[in-house]
Amino acid sequence: MNTGGQKPRAGGGGLHRLAEPAPVEVGVDGAGSPEQVAGRKVIAIRESWLVEDRWWTSEPIRRHYWEVVDERGAVCVVFRQPGNRWLVHR
């Protein structure tokens, strides 16, 4: 959703995106899979998947997702966008 570049105020009503992905530092291995997310070691990759869509629009989507477990046992979903930009979902 386009919020016009301004974050909606908490409790201010209106629509806003939940769990908006945030940029994150990710270290990768030789195959390009995450080894470290936000400075924490990845101990397991539960799944990875690809989303390549909306290529016919001015905003094509090309994301490689990984669902990983970090050294604390926390599960998070990170994805890589073109330009090697990494974001984290949760």
Binding site: W49, L50, V51, E52, D53, W56
Partner: peptide, 13 residues
């Protein structure tokens, strides 16, 4: 294309 996202294959694999 906009109206058939669930049916498309979603990537180039």
């Amino acid at each position: 294309l906009d109206a058939c996202e669930p049916e498309r294959r979603g990537n180039g694999s």
